[in-house]
C-alpha cells in the first residue's frame, strides 16, 4: 500500500493507494499515529485510489479516528467507491465517521 501525506490549511490529507490489509494496516496505523503525536489531528483520508480494504484496514481507520478525536481533532473520509464503500457500509462505519464525496467537500465545509 502507498500512503501519501500532504497539508492543506490545518488539515492533513492522507491519500491511500492499493491494498489496506492485515500486512499493510499496522504500518499505516503507526504512520498516522506519529502525525497525530506531532500535532496533526485534523485528518482527511482519501480512499479514491484504494482497491481493497479488510477488517484490519477498517480497524486502523477506527484507531486513527479515536486517536485524533482524543486530541481534539477529527478524521473525515472521502473518495469511497465500489466494494471498498460497500465494506464501509456493512461495517457501520458510515455512522461512525464523517464521509464526503471528495476532499474538496471537506475543505469547503468551513
Amino acid at each position: 500500500m502507498d500512503v501519501n501525506f500532504s497539508k492543506q490549511g490545518d488539515w492533513t490529507i492522507i491519500a491511500v493507494e492499493g491494498r489496506m490489509d492485515t500486512v499493510s494496516a499496522p504500518e499505516f496505523e503507526k504512520m498516522v499515529q506519529e502525525r497525530i503525536l506531532q500535532g496533526s489531528n485534523r485528518l482527511i483520508v482519501d480512499f479514491s485510489k484504494l482497491d481493497y480494504i479488510s477488517s484490519a484496514g477498517l480497524r486502523s481507520i477506527l484507531v486513527a479516528g479515536k486517536n485524533s478525536k482524543a486530541k481534539g481533532g477529527e478524521l473525515a473520509c472521502c473518495g469511497l467507491q465500489g466494494v471498498v464503500k460497500k465494506v464501509f457500509d456493512v461495517s457501520g462505519f458510515h455512522k461512525l465517521l464523517p464521509i464526503f464525496d471528495s476532499k474538496e467537500d471537506v475543505l469547503n465545509r468551513e
Binding site: 484490519a56 480497524r59 461495517s91
Partner: peptide
C-alpha cells in the same frame, strides 16, 4: 466512534 470496540469486525464481514 469513542464507544466503538476495535475488534470483532472480521467475522462480521
Amino acid at each position: 466512534i469513542l464507544e466503538c470496540e476495535v475488534g470483532g469486525l472480521g467475522i462480521h464481514l
